[in-house]
Amino acid sequence: MKTIIVTGGTRGIGRAIVDMLVAKFKQNVPAVAQTRLVVTYRSGVAQADALAAELKDLGIDADIQQMDLADLSSVTAFVQHVTQTYGKADALINNAGMTNDGSFLAMADADVASLIHTNLNGTIALTEQMVPLLQQAGCSSVIFMASAAGVYGKEGQVPYATTKGGIIGYSQLLARRYGRQRMYINAVAPGFIATDMVTALDPAMFEHTLNNASIGSMGTPADVANVVHSLLTPGYIQATTIKVDGGHLR
């Protein structure tokens, strides 16, 4: 049985990835019985419980676990749980993360440090601890949720962009170390995606961004999830960051 791990999978893009995986499993009925989903959340217990109930109703073998990337003991406890319960991981989708936005010059040092600690250090800590479990699978995928901000920078998101750039760099470093062990390691960089945080905004705040993309509209979480799904199949795509940004400035 395959084990696929999605961090931060109870809301936003993470939830879309879980929904997409479930939809794919249902299209290929044997896959439902052959794959289990391990989904983490940080604090949204109600959303986690709702997802667990939903997946149970669909007949999906799912394991919803609390994990906080900012707390290395929590990360270690999660990895121990996966080790003891499943003994391997076929895919790790590193989606969890946070942001502190605002003027960089006015930003508190603590806000800068917490982003690096959580988004970058936490993601690296989890992945490094997961490596033996990914190796145990024989052939595995690691997918990092980066951001367009990490590819071409973004005003008002300096530390966030820094951590996402770092994640892209880490995907390259990890591929250097494990690419020859049938570990497929890539990153996805979403641009302007219609998550609940964005759709609540006044359109005047983001119209200029949409006008800079050749498609001219927002992407959906499902657009990102479809790319993630395609990267779960082993192939010749390695150490690459795929931009899902509607053709921003291209």
Partner: peptide, 20 residues
């Protein structure tokens, strides 16, 4: 070989440059 630092710093510089 510092791909993490390099990519992080590149993203930081691109972002800061827009602000300052």
């Amino acid at each position: 070989s510092n791909p993490i630092t390099n990519n992080a710093v590149i993203a930081a510089v691109q972002s800061i440059a827009k602000e300052v």
